[in-house]
């Protein structure tokens, strides 16, 4: 697992899963599994912007970019 993916996973496990990573696979949809809601997505975006120094554009708020660890890893790679 890349460093970026680990960082993101740690953030999600700590903030949304209360430290329990059971069932969070790299391809798991956060929304479909009820891990993150719309409030959580904004927190996640805030984290990405601070941690990776990127700017997440409004039109980039689509599941293809943000709705799994794999999608996030690829998105961050494109942005950096």
């Amino acid at each position: 697992m890349s460093d970026n993916k680990t960082l993101i996973k740690d953030f999600i496990v700590e903030n949304f899963l209360f430290g329990n990573a059971d069932g969070l696979e790299d391809g798991t949809s956060f929304l479909e599994e009820g891990i993150i809601d719309s409030t959580g997505v904004l927190e996640l975006v805030g984290f990405l912007e601070e941690e990776f120094g990127i700017s997440v554009e409004d039109e980039e708020l689509v599941p293809e970019n943000l709705d799994s660890l794999n999608n996030l890893e690829a998105y961050i790679k494109r942005k950096m």
Partner: peptide, 11 residues
């Protein structure tokens, strides 16, 4: 069911 990603809904 993915309004959390509003751009996807608008598209």
């Amino acid at each position: 069911n993915k309004f959390a990603f509003p751009a996807g809904v608008l598209n």
